[in-house]
Design a protein around this nucleic acid. Structure first.
Length: 453
RNA sequence: GGUCCCUUCGUCUAUCGGUUAGGACACCAGAUUUUCAAUCUGGGAAGAGGGGUUCGACUCCCCUAGGGACUGCCA
């Protein structure tokens, strides 16, 4: 599920909620080869992850093929459709000619009486050759198309299967769709589809065509830009609510508001305010927005999500480790942009004792520093207030009593506590680890360093 | 090639004929800090170009340039 598709779904969802309407999901699976069960599942998963559940069970387009064929019969009888016996080879020749002459392709069968032949044929829509069709787009305003530029689209394939362009019109009508909010790439289809609505004598829905999302370089978003599928963003540690907020701001704005709740977005959103130019995906801003939501998220939920990241990396956590993880999350989540960063920043509490000392820390553990760490250890053992607020002044006072800056031995202590992994400030690291664990890690390191010497 | 869409700081956007063109991310500087991040303060940064319309255009119209979509018996 492309992130652009997700944004389109979000705008549909917001607008439906805003209007008190219904957000419908239809799986357009008329192309049987592409619509595998797995592909459809990806859509369901993507929407579920984003929290954009439809208000009614999904409609599968292919299952409605009989109804689509019924509509085609109506068009045939009304003279608004015809059988076209062009072979693919003939079509290709016509396509080349039409392109060279700068016109739409035309079938010679358009003006012939149906032969009743059993030869393979498709059924095409008989569109008007004169006049114009105006798509009253809610975002772009009126867009005019000359009818002669619009080719007669295929309604039924030679195997009798309905095409997308026919099926959407019939389904949208039958489902009572009032607003069609979709990607820019469908704008010209809107004109052709409008003609089918008219031929069927049906009322047109309102159309809104959203520009596509581009990569940071302005080109169409693709794999090489880092990610393009919703699942990839989930794997990269983004929160669904962060994604919703960021995506909402991509192609839509409400004054100076940047971080807002779903309720606010729903109250403010109007599809007419959607921006008509394409937007580029900006990783830095996505990270910032997601970071805001990590900060807002509650620790219990972050623990579950972060544990999943650790487990995906092959690190199983028991109850004690999970408790340590929660403590660490509370202390580091302010600085984390993604769940991946949160996992990295909390890894140090999950390390098994005794920790391997990294080279940098080993070098820092000079005889002088070892002595100092030993004395600090005793201070810590006697420290009454084992909180960040209590430990900070305690460490400071210790450094002062030793006549050194914290930096002098702080780096060594950090290394000893974290085993060289990323870790927050000293006081936070200490509280995340608990007193026993902290003291044990210092003891381990001191004896290890002794042996190395 | 044809048809259509788009064009405000590097990026996302506000403005809907009269503003010192606002905000956010990013960036730079300073403060803070045991490192990084975070946080706080300050700063630089924009109406693609050219014509009109108007007392007055970022806002309306035209042209040019650039970007994009469509041009399928795909959706």
């Amino acid at each position: 599920m492309h992130i652009g598709t997700a944004r389109t779904a979000l705008f549909n969802w917001l607008y439906a909620r805003h209007c008190g309407g219904t957000f419908l999901l239809r799986i357009e699976d008329t192309d049987r080869e592409r619509s595998t069960e797995a592909a459809v599942q990806v859509i369901f998963d993507g929407l579920a992850w984003l929290g954009l559940e439809a208000d009614a069970p999904p409609v599968f387009q292919f299952a409605r093929a009989d109804r689509h064929r019924e509509a085609v019969q109506e068009l045939l009888q009304a003279g608004r459709a015809y059988r076209c016996y062009m072979t693919v080879e003939e079509l290709e020749v016509e396509r080349q000619k039409a392109r060279a002459e700068g016109r739409a392709i035309r079938s010679p069968w358009r003006d012939r009486e149906a032969t009743g032949s059993n030869l393979p044929h498709v059924i095409r829509f008989r569109g008007p050759l004169e006049g114009e069709t105006i798509v009253a787009d809610l975002i772009k305003g009126p867009v005019r198309f000359q009818n002669k530029e619009l080719d007669d689209l295929v309604l039924l394939r030679s195997d009798g299967a309905p095409t997308y362009n026919l099926a959407v019109v019939v389904d949208d009508h039958d489902m009572g769709v009032t607003h069609v909010i979709r990607g820019d790439d469908h704008l010209s289809n809107a004109a052709r589809q409008s003609l089918i609505y008219q031929a069927m004598g049906w009322e047109l829905p309102a159309f809104a065509h959203l520009p596509l999302i581009h990569g940071p370089d302005g080109a169409k978003l693709s794999k090489r830009h880092g990610a393009q599928a919703v699942g990839e963003f989930a794997d990269m540690g983004y929160l669904p609510e962060g994604m919703r907020n960021y995506l909402a701001r991509l192609g839509w704005g409400h004054g100076d508001d940047e971080i807002f709740s779903d309720e606010q977005a729903i109250a403010w959103f109007d599809i007419a305010d959607a921006v008509s130019s394409p937007a580029r995906l900006d990783w830095a801003k996505l990270n910032f927005v997601n970071g805001q939501y990590i900060r807002l998220a509650d620790d219990a939920r972050l623990t579950i999500l972060t544990r999943q990241v650790h487990e995906r990396r092959g690190l199983a956590l028991d109850d004690a480790a999970t408790a340590a993880l929660t403590r660490a999350i509370a202390l580091v989540k302010e600085g984390a942009k993604t769940l991946i960063e949160l996992a990295d920043l909390t890894l140090f509490v999950l390390k098994a004792r005794p920790l391997d000392l990294d080279e940098k820390t080993q070098k820092l553990l000079t005889e002088e520093t070892r002595g100092r760490l030993g004395r600090l250890r005793n201070h810590l053992a006697a420290q009454a207030d084992w909180s960040v607020a209590g430990l900070e002044p305690a460490i400071r006072a210790f450094a002062e009593s030793e006549g050194v800056g914290i930096g002098k031995f702080g780096a060594a202590l950090r290394g000893v506590l974290s085993g060289g992994a990323a870790a927050p400030d000293l006081a936070s690291s200490l509280t995340a680890l608990t007193r026993d664990e902290s003291l044990a890690r210092i003891d381990d390191a001191l004896s290890q360093a002794q042996q190395t010497v």
